[in-house]
Design a binder for these strands. Sequence first.
DNA 1: ATGCCTCAGCTCCTGAGA
Length: 254
Amino acid sequence: MKLATWNVNSLSVRLPQVLEWLKTNPVDVLVMQEIKMTDDKFPADIFRSAGYCAEWFGQKTYNGVALLSRTQASDVVKNIPGFDDDMARVITATVNDVRVVGAYFPNGQAPGTEKFEYKMEWLKGLRDWLKTEMPAHPKLLLMGDYNITFDDADVWDPQGMRDQIHCTDEERYHLNALIAMGLTDSHRLFAQAPKSYSWWDYRDFGFRRNRGLRIDHILVSAALKPLVKSCVIDTTPRKNERPSDHAPVVIDIA
DNA sequence: ATGCCTCAGCTCCTGAGA
């Protein structure tokens, strides 16, 4: 079973690229973030024609998430139960007995801002919910745009970005707390090329110079960990005309 | 350099992203 996550940065703009990518990469599940459209605009019919069922949770201008699957998803949950949020950031569903959580973690802007505080509260809310969701669904993936790096290896300029957004100890505390709950970073289960990133700034030829961050992650539960066959960041779509700033991450599970 | 791109919208500038 192959699953992927991709922050598409506007599904309206990226729809042709998503369809093209799915043709070459016929994954069983694709979770998308930042679809940036209201529910009535979601192109469910087009995905249906491409062979995918869809669940979506949209929002105007910002945020918005969706989950595509070859087979019908069930038990769909939108956002984090128990955590009040007016932003559409999480969509969860069961596909082939696997619980898939697709999430767009808050950006946080900068330490010391209200948005950073919201990011911290959101991360706590996510964890509180997972405390019950994980035991209820032993086979679980938490995948999406985390907007947090694990360590220096995920950062093109660790010195320059020290204590900056995506790289602060506070954010990494919450990321490591997810690991402490029994989740595993599937990317690090395998030998990966050095300087493997999933996001590159549009400005200053970020991609061409490989000035990036690894902030899109696929974490797996203990029951899934031994079944993971590979985890790959696909930089191909970043080479398109008008690309998303993020690349898809793909996991293969036995 | 409170910028550099890109996207959406109360659209020809601004806020937000990361």
